[in-house]
Amino acid sequence: MGITIIDELDLILRLLAGMAVGVVVGWERTLKQQSAGIRTFGLVGLGTATAAAIFTGDGEADAASRVVQGVLTGIGFLGAGVITLSRAQQTPRGLTTAAAIWVTAALGCAAGRGDWPIVLTGTALAVLLLAIDHSVERWAGRRAGKPPSTTARHDSP
C-alpha cells in the first residue's frame, strides 16, 4: 500500500493539532509569567502527537496504547522539573504548570491519534481551568500563601 496525499495531509493535521494544543496552553502559562511557556508546551504537544501518530494504522491499537502509556508516564519527569519549593512559605510552586504539561501531553497523544472531540473539548477545558485565578481558590477557602491543612492542629495548654 502506498501513502496518499490524503494520508500525508491527515498526518500533518494531527501533528499541527498537537503543536497547537501546546501553544494554546503555553500561551496562558506565558501570560502568567511561568517558567514553561509557548515553546516548551508546543514541543510537548508536537512530540506526543508524533509519538502517538507512529502507530495509528489498523491492527496497531496495542502498540499505540503502549506508546501513550509510556509518554504519559515519562512526561512526569518534565513536569517535575518545573516544581520548586518556596522555603519562605514552605509551599510547592509550579504544580499547575506541571499538571498543564501532563494534560498537554495527553491532548497531544489524542491529536496524534486523530481523536478530535477529545482534542477540542480537552483543550477548551484545560484553558478554562487555567483561567481560574487564585481569587476563586481563596473564595473557596484556601488562604493566600498558606498550604492547605491536612491535619487538625491542637495547641498544647
Results as ranks from 00 to 15, higher is better:
G112P: 01
S35G: 08
D62N: 13
D133W: 08
A126Q: 05
G108L: 08
A98L: 07
E8L: 14
L85K: 12
A152Y: 11
L129N: 13
A61E: 15
A64C: 09
V82F: 01
L15W: 01
D10M: 10
V119Q: 01
W139L: 15
V127L: 11
T91E: 12
Q69D: 12
R39W: 06
A51T: 03
K146I: 13
T48L: 04
G59I: 09
W102G: 07
R14A: 02
T97H: 01
D115W: 13
D133C: 06
D115S: 09
P148L: 12
R29Y: 05
C109F: 01
P117H: 07
A64E: 10
L128M: 14
V103S: 01
I5H: 10
T150M: 14
I3Q: 08
I118Y: 06
A49Q: 01
T104H: 02
I118C: 10
A63L: 14
S86D: 15
V71T: 05
G79H: 05
G22Y: 00
L16P: 03
I38R: 01
G42W: 03
Q89L: 15
T4I: 08
I3P: 01
A105M: 05
T121R: 05
Q69I: 09
T30P: 00
A111W: 03
M19T: 02
P148Q: 08
D155T: 14
G141F: 05
V67K: 01
L13Q: 12
I83R: 07
I6C: 04
L130G: 03
A63Y: 05
L129I: 14
W116G: 04
R66F: 07
D58L: 10
I54Y: 05
D115M: 11
P148T: 10
I5M: 13
P92N: 12
V67R: 02
A88F: 08
L31E: 12
T50Q: 04
V71R: 02
A36G: 06
T40H: 02
T56H: 02
A64D: 08
T96E: 07
S135Q: 15
A53D: 04
G22S: 08
P92A: 15
G42D: 01
A140C: 11
G108F: 04
L16C: 14
H154S: 13
V119G: 00
